[in-house]
């Protein structure tokens, strides 16, 4: 039954990810990316990670994509602004080779991945993936990374304000 939910969701995500890369207008790419984020939230729910699924929708599909849309509108990007989008003409050969390399890596990875022997998930307690258990882990084993992340976000906030200012005084 889970497979019946998994395959359409996974196909949806892959198609929309391809849509991000091959769409000619930046707004279309951004909308595909929002759809992909929502599909991924569905996959996280399928993996019993409910808290992360909600975070995915709030942070990625909500905050980050709004920021992207905002910048696209601010820069007034139009369809086909990057006319030579397929590759640089100067190093077309290099681009093709690296593309082939990426696909080759995927092929090799799939070889390795299908030797994985884990076919059934662990017996999960009811509390798996809930806010309570994630919070407990976050505030016991991972307190230091949590605090460091807050400093990182503060630094990013200050950095974004400084970078986007028109004139530094």
């Amino acid at each position: 039954m889970e497979l019946l939910i998994f395959y359409p969701l996974a196909g949806f995500c892959v198609v929309l990810a391809l849509g991000v890369v091959f769409n000619t207008s930046p707004v279309g790419s951004a909308l595909s990316l929002i759809g992909m984020m929502l599909g991924l939230a569905g996959i996280f729910v399928l993996q019993q990670a409910h808290f992360i699924a909600i975070l995915q929708i709030i942070i990625y599909a909500g905050a980050i994509m709004v920021l992207f849309m905002f910048v696209i509108m601010l820069l007034n990007l139009k369809k086909g602004d990057d006319a030579g989008w397929i590759a640089r003409d100067r190093n077309l050969l290099l681009s093709v080779l690296t593309g082939l390399l990426a696909v080759g890596i995927l092929y090799k990875l799939s070889d390795i991945i299908f030797t994985a022997k884990m076919n059934t998930p662990a017996i999960l307690p009811d509390s798996f993936g809930t806010v309570a258990i994630i919070g407990e882990t976050l505030f016991t084993d991972f307190v230091l990374p949590f605090e460091v992340a807050s400093i990182l976000l503060l630094a990013a906030m200050v950095g974004a304000v400084v970078l986007a200012k028109t004139k530094l005084d």
Binding site: I59, A122, P145
Partner: peptide
């Protein structure tokens, strides 16, 4: 995480989201 009944992987993905948010704000600036 799901296959080994841990919760550290979820914390890691939480941190990845934090870094992504920071990266997007600075990168777009």
């Amino acid at each position: 995480d799901n296959y080994m009944n841990l919760s550290s992987g979820q914390i890691f993905s939480f941190m990845v989201m934090c870094v992504a948010a920071a990266e997007v704000s600075v990168g777009l600036a």
